[in-house]
Every structure is written in C-alpha cells, then in structure tokens.
Design a protein around this nucleic acid. Structure first.
Lengths: 214, 214
DNA sequence: ACCTGAACACCGTTCAAGT
DNA sequence: ACCTGAACACCGTTCAAGT
C-alpha cells in the first residue's frame, strides 16, 4: 500500500541538510540561500521546496543537526550552585562554536531538544539550592538572557572589528566625551576599549548565579 | 568661497531621517528599504545615496534621532546600588519602546551618545558601592548583556506569538519530553509557558546587581 | 552639486508544466 | 511523487548621464 507511483527522488532531506551545513561551514550563514543551496546540491531551488516548507524550516533542521554533535556535555560537579555555573558555561561555549545559531535560536526562549540538557541541569541545580520550581525557571531565564546577550553582542562586535578599518562609532563618542557630564566615563576614558575586550563572561555569570541563589 | 555652483537640493538629511521615521513608525523597521524611503520622499533611491553613504549610516542617523527623544531619564535615588538598578531599568524600558533599535544597537557594545547617561550612572553607582573602575566597567557590561538579551528574546518571542497559529516548537518539545531524562522539566511541565510569560526582568536584574555588588 | 533612469547582482517564493 | 523553468515581487548598490 506504500509508495508505488511517481518519480524517484533525486535529493533527500538528509542530503539537503548536509549541503546546507557545507555552505554554512565554508561561507557563513549569510551565504545560505535557497539558490546557493540548490547549486551545492546540483539541483534547483524548487526541488528543495518539495522537501521543506520554507527557509525557516530548513534553518530549524540545520540547527538540530548542529546541536546533535556540537553540544558540550561536561561532567558536572555535585555542588548544585557550581552545577548551575558550569552548565551555563557549557551552554554558552557550545553556542559560541556555532554562533550563527543564536540568530535562529532567539526566535524562542528554548532552542532545540538537545539544549534541554542544559535547562534541566540549571533548573535542577537551582532547586537543589533551595529555590522553588517557579523560582528555578525564572533563574534559568535570567541566565539565558545573560548568555544569549553575551553571545549576540560579542558576535556582532567581532564582525565589526573584522570588517571595519576606520575608528568605531564608540571610539568617536569617547573621544568627544564631555568630562563634566560624564565624570566616571571620562575617568575610565581610553581604557574602555581595553576593558571591554577582556573576556568577563564567567565572572559575570558567577555574579548572576550568586545573586539568583541567595 | 563656499558653495556657489550646482543644482539646488530637493531633499535634505533631516527630511530623509524624518521620512525614515514615518516608515518605521507606521510599517516597522523591516519595511524600511531605500526604495520605500525614496517613495516616501517623492524622490529616487539614488537621491538618498547622495546624502548618506549606505543604509547602515541611515540606520545610525535614525537611531540618534529616536534616542534624542525616547530615552527616559528618571530621577535616580541616592543609594548607589538602587541607582544602578533603576538606571538599568530605565535603559531597558527606553529600548523596549523602540525595540527595533536593538537590531542596530548590538552592532557595538555602546549605542548612541544618548545612552552614555545610563552607562555613567551604572558605572558611578557601582564605584560608589566600592568597585574599582575596572570592576565597574565589567559590571556594566554584564548588565548590558542581560538587558540586551532580555529585549532581543522578548521581541522575537512576541513576534512569533503574533504571527504563528500552530503550536510553537517549544510546545512540541515539551509535549514529547522524556521524564526519565529530564525529571525537573517534566515536573514543571505544562507550567513552563505560563512561567516564561511572566515579566521577571526586574527580579533578575536585582539578582544580577546584588551578585555584582557584593 | 544634486538628481534621474537603467541596470547589476542578488533574494524567497509561486505557478504551470514536465516526467 | 518529484523535479524543472520561468516568472513575480522584491532587495542594496553602481554607473553614466542629465540639469
């Protein structure tokens, strides 16, 4: 009773996803267009549309494929607070490796199924520290905002740094800074660039976790 | 010695920015294209290009115009820790009102000059609590990650909610959740949607500030 | 100096037809 | 059932010419 009629398929969903990965890995997510993908497959854009509803669906499929093998799941310590910190750190580090993902991810507050491991461990650690289920979920969300914000801002900032030769908008603003209006910023002044270049993700994360888990 | 020759201008930079604002206010930032803008001006795309280098420059100009009049600057309390919280809250609330802005903003860790007020007050409050200049800048960045992350994720989530009729990806994931692998998430279960719909920005912010300022 | 029109090199997606 | 080709309705930007 199963498929008996019709033209035999030339491309399959796994092949499509694999081709999409090749494009993203070599040329970046911005270059992933339906046309470029079809070219990579030796096919036409519309052949792809027979397997996926639209480009968004393709991106979700791609996300899952990446998640499957890029998610770091380190051994977590017994101490519940430290478990929260290290789970969040692992979530962050996994996402940074495929940072184009956040542009897709932020569509929802929960990403693919593979990310549940992080959520579970963060919520569990928080509850083991004495938070209620409700508080633990709220704590997870605060952590997710922090992690996502850090990744997005860093990604954009480093893209700028790579592309731009002239001084950044920020540099100009600081150069023209009025010390009377903004004494603290004037005090920090030229060190701003240096200070914001430092990686302070984990210290910030620990502060957040400490604040969330009294 | 100044301009003597040449055709008289038909459109000015202020007019361009004003027209861009009309487009963004009525139809959203996604509809702001050079062609649509030209139409709004009763002109051609290339006339605009004579006044701005490219679309990015237009967006920065637009950002400044919005910032000038949308930035909330409430009276801040004397207590330095509370000053940090309320400055961050005001920064957040100002940005939410023009949330399309974050898509442009995140290009750098500092936005327009108008945002310096927030930065100054956050850094100042942190230093008044005993942090060094260096620590205060790092604290500001952690707060900015949190604020930016919250705005971006909320913006995207609400866009989805408006557009989509079918159940979200998240709902499907939770429905198929394996309680053995993820006991805590199974425990929270159906309440997830309800819990993540709550506005917990300020409690999260206070936790972060408390963690940053011992 | 400032503006116009046509064109280039792209997009995602729909539609009608082919095998 | 699956694929193709042409077309639609867009983009940002460049180029050559007009006033």
């Amino acid at each position: 009773m199963s498929s008996r009629t019709g033209r035999p398929p030339k491309i399959s969903l796994p092949e499509i996803v694999e081709a999409a990965r090749r494009v993203v890995d070599t040329d970046g997510v911005a270059k992933l267009t339906m046309r470029r993908l079809a070219q990579e497959l030796g096919s036409t854009p519309m052949a792809v549309y027979h397997h996926v509803r639209d480009k968004d669906e393709l991106l979700v499929l791609l996300l899952d494929a990446y998640a499957e093998e890029n998610m770091l799941k380190p051994e977590l310590p017994d101490d519940p607070r430290e478990r929260v910190v290290l789970a969040a750190r692992a979530m962050h580090d996994s996402l940074v490796r495929v940072s184009w993902v956040v542009e897709v991810i932020t569509a929802d507050d929960l990403m693919s199924e593979s990310a549940l491991w992080y959520v579970e461990n963060i919520v569990d650690g928080a509850m083991a520290c004495g938070l209620t289920a409700e508080q633990a979920v709220h704590a997870y969300r605060a952590i997710w905002y922090y992690v996502a914000g850090e990744i997005i801002i860093h990604r954009k900032a480093s893209r700028r740094r790579a592309a731009d030769d002239r001084p950044t908008y920020r540099d100009r603003v600081f150069a023209e800074l009025d010390g009377a209006d903004y004494p603290r910023l004037a005090e920090v002044g030229a060190r701003w660039g240096e200070l914001t270049a430092q990686d302070t993700f984990e210290t910030g994360l620990r502060a957040l976790v400490n604040g969330l888990i009294t």
